[in-house]
Amino acid sequence: MVFRGAYDNINGVRRPYITVLVRSRTGVWVPLPFLIDSGADATFLDASCLQQMGADAGAVFEQTASGVGGKAAHIQVTTALRFESEEGAKTFTGVIGIFTDPEACDTPVLGRDVLDSFLLIFDRGHNSILLLSPPHDYEVVTR
């Protein structure tokens, strides 16, 4: 399967994004644009997603995550992430963090807890971002 991301371009800074469906507490699949971050250990949502995800403060607990410009408090929710392509879909389940401080992060971040399940290709030259899953693969050639 091939899942495709895209580079945006704001003020000369290009960032790689991919749209992933995230299941809210009420079972609704919401498409969210994730920053593809191979430097992030874990996947997080930003604070703006709290309401749409239906995060229940009474059912979660706080911990701190570091590496996002410092420590940032977050809550944890159980959810599912779903990548969809014309070839098929790939679903991940488990616990995801949602930052509680809007200043911590301004976009959902897709970390290596999910990315490591794909072959990830960043090709700025061809303006292409690919997340490959079997049966799709890649080969390095000499031109």
Binding site: M1, G88, A89, T91, F92, G94, D113
Partner: peptide, 8 residues
């Protein structure tokens, strides 16, 4: 933590 669940 998030883990692969299934393909469809």
């Amino acid at each position: 933590p998030l883990q692969f669940a299934h393909d469809d």
